[in-house]
Design a protein around this nucleic acid. Structure first.
Lengths: 202, 202
DNA sequence: GTCTATAAAGCGATAGAC
DNA sequence: GTCTATCGCTTTATAGAC
């Protein structure tokens, strides 16, 4: 163990890890897990591949680190929303809006639900699972509250509502609609929040 | 050109191609485009890889052939629905229901919207594009009709409704809800059709 | 057209010098 | 810890005999 200025060294390494995770987050949002290569990540950060593997032992662990970060941002947003004067439905709609805005900003990593080795790495990651459970618990509470107030369809199982919110956070409709270039980002987000909660019907 | 029983030979080759496309369709529905390997396809059909490449010149072309088949099935369903006594909204809901049932049956191939080489192969495939345009046109007409009758939210651009229907056909919510094992397939389909058209709100 | 065998390339991960 | 160089594996695609 070196004794000389361990603080500086520590901070430098932490900053490098943050840079890696930030690149991974952006690349995952851009192209998804399978299309993202470790070579791209290291080229983007400007380090050698072997250096990256000193910080993270696998590509899956990289993705897990990015997911931890996005879950932290989501939990921060939930905390912020609790401080506002909104009912449960309003908070849930605000969460959906936040997720769409993250996606527009290129900050919403997209992971394939099919990849088994990735899923195994995620469920084995305590930092990830803890945050996922906490997020699900808090949202679950809001869902029950909104259903009790008659603001959410009480005939739907809360888990269905929760899964739907998670799925809509990565809704590909946003991307194709945005690529058409015919509407503003704000307009698109409004429409998507509307269709999520009120559906397509008139 | 051989002159001996060309009909039989032709039919045999057609049957083999059909078997290939059927395998591709199932594997695409199971694991998606990137996770599906050509080796799996040929192992499933029981032929050599070089034989497959005599019928299809690339993995992308395989996927396109599977998409043509599923679009044909969709167009057949649209023709069937036109013969029923349903208004435009009812037909659109029936199409959504049909798509969910295809997904449950493992017959709805899932293609990544990000893969650029795949997209290029698809837009360059006339058979695929013709069917996609025809399907979009017919659904677009129903959407306008339902909006005119006040049964669909007329404030939403028709393209948004169309993209949403396409996206919901591959909605991952169905898979995770089904994996939980707590509900019947019919119940899940009903819920998803409801959330698609009426949203989560009560 | 179908087969066996192999080429060609991409990618995740690591060895070993510094 | 970081680098260069490379391993080892997977996967797409093809060559050449039959």
């Amino acid at each position: 163990m070196s004794a000389a200025r361990p603080r500086f060294r520590e901070q430098f390494l932490q900053a490098r890890e943050d840079a890696i995770v930030e690149s991974v987050n952006r690349l995952l949002a851009e192209k998804g897990f399978e299309a993202m290569t470790v070579d791209e990540v290291v080229a983007d950060v400007g380090i050698a591949k072997a250096s990256l593997y000193k910080h993270f032992t696998s590509k899956e662990e990289l993705a897990a680190a990015a997911m931890v970060k996005v879950l932290d941002r989501a939990l921060d947003e939930l905390a912020r929303l609790r401080g506002l004067e909104l009912n449960a439905l309003g908070r849930l709609q605000a969460v959906a809006r936040w997720a769409y805005e993250q996606q527009i900003a290129g900050q919403m990593p997209a992971l394939p639900s099919q990849n088994s080795t990735l899923r195994a790495a995620l469920v084995g990651d305590k930092a990830y699972m803890d945050r996922l459970v906490q997020l699900s618990d808090e949202l679950g509470g809001w869902i029950l509250e909104a259903q009790g107030q008659g603001h959410l369809n009480a005939a739907l199982p809360p888990e269905l509502v929760l899964y739907t919110l998670f799925a809509r956070a990565c809704d590909p409709v946003l991307g194709v609609l945005r690529a058409s270039g015919a509407h503003s980002d704000a307009q698109i987000v409004d429409w998507l929040v509307t269709t999520c909660f009120k559906g397509l019907a008139g």
